[in-house]
Amino acid sequence: MDSKSATPDPKTQNPIAPAKPTSKNQKDFLTQLEIYLAKRDGVDKLLKISRYATKIILASSLIAQEPLVTRLKSFESSVGVSRKAFRLGKFVQDVNALRSTHFTSHSDLNFVLNVIAYGGEGLYYFIEQFVWLGKAGLIDKRRLPALQKWSAWCEFVGYFGSVSLKVIELRKIDEEERCLVASIDLAVLRGIECREEHDKLRKLREKKMMKRLSMVQDLADGLMALADIRDGRGRLSAPLVVSSAGLLSALISTHKNWISC
């Protein structure tokens, strides 16, 4: 008998069981969740979801029990103050964005819109620090109405600039997409393989979708800022409408931040 045939195959002697995909997926999810929660925006958006979900419950009168309603109102108010604390120093990122605007803007219109977007948002975050100090009791609360009014105006102006920029960017993406589709169609007619172009088209459409979601988020946040400016007057400033807009904005932002992790 051949000695090689009597020797057991080491590959079959101690087979290694494949890793369970479920545990690996669970590990990936937990790792991504850890990274997400380590970010200031990640925690802020989770607080935003809980706050506006609570506001929707209160605005829709789903709960009639007075003790529970009081607790929900107290919870919503506390979460709102906590979110303002998370924004301390956040205006610095808008200052840095303004510093680089001169190099990233390719036209005078883009430059002006960047100044409006980042300038308005930066002033909003800066004033919000004093609003938080007022709600925390360090600043005289009589100054809060004026501070909140200025904050809402700055936020609204910032979102106006941001939405305008995204409209221009979406037009450029649409034009780039049409050119890419035309080149792919021409390559198909000539029998040329264009796998790389298809990959570019897929990424471009993903970018387009994220840009649209970002614009919807800005419109929802702008609606809430407008409601603050109008002191809750008007149909678009109804509590249920504003709360729904806030929840939509929070969900979109959470989705964007989760993907970025």
Results as ranks from 00 to 15, higher is better:
residue 92 V to C: 07
residue 108 D to S: 12
residue 197 E to H: 08
residue 151 S to Q: 14
residue 127 I to A: 11
residue 204 L to E: 04
residue 120 G to L: 02
residue 247 L to H: 01
residue 161 G to W: 04
residue 189 L to P: 03
residue 206 E to V: 00
residue 6 A to N: 02
residue 173 I to D: 06
residue 49 I to R: 03
residue 154 C to M: 11
residue 2 D to V: 00
residue 101 T to N: 13
residue 162 S to N: 12
residue 229 I to P: 12
residue 15 P to A: 12
residue 180 L to W: 03
residue 238 A to W: 04
residue 154 C to S: 15
residue 114 N to K: 10
residue 43 V to A: 09
residue 95 V to I: 15
residue 170 L to S: 10
residue 63 I to S: 06
residue 93 Q to N: 15
residue 76 E to H: 08
residue 94 D to S: 11
residue 261 C to M: 10
residue 219 L to H: 01
residue 171 R to F: 07
residue 240 L to D: 07
residue 33 L to D: 06
residue 97 A to K: 14
residue 251 L to N: 02
residue 195 R to D: 11
residue 148 Q to V: 05
residue 187 A to R: 10
residue 214 S to A: 08
residue 146 A to P: 05
residue 91 F to Y: 15
residue 55 K to Y: 05
residue 27 K to C: 04
residue 168 I to D: 13
residue 91 F to H: 15
residue 98 L to I: 05
residue 17 A to I: 04
residue 161 G to N: 05
residue 131 V to N: 15
residue 76 E to C: 07
residue 173 I to Q: 10
residue 151 S to M: 08
residue 1 M to I: 08
residue 32 Q to V: 00
residue 239 P to G: 06
residue 159 Y to A: 02
residue 125 Y to L: 15
residue 30 L to Q: 14
residue 203 K to T: 01
residue 74 S to M: 09
residue 203 K to Q: 11
residue 123 L to C: 10
residue 12 T to W: 07
residue 231 D to Y: 06
residue 55 K to F: 03
residue 73 K to T: 12
residue 170 L to K: 09
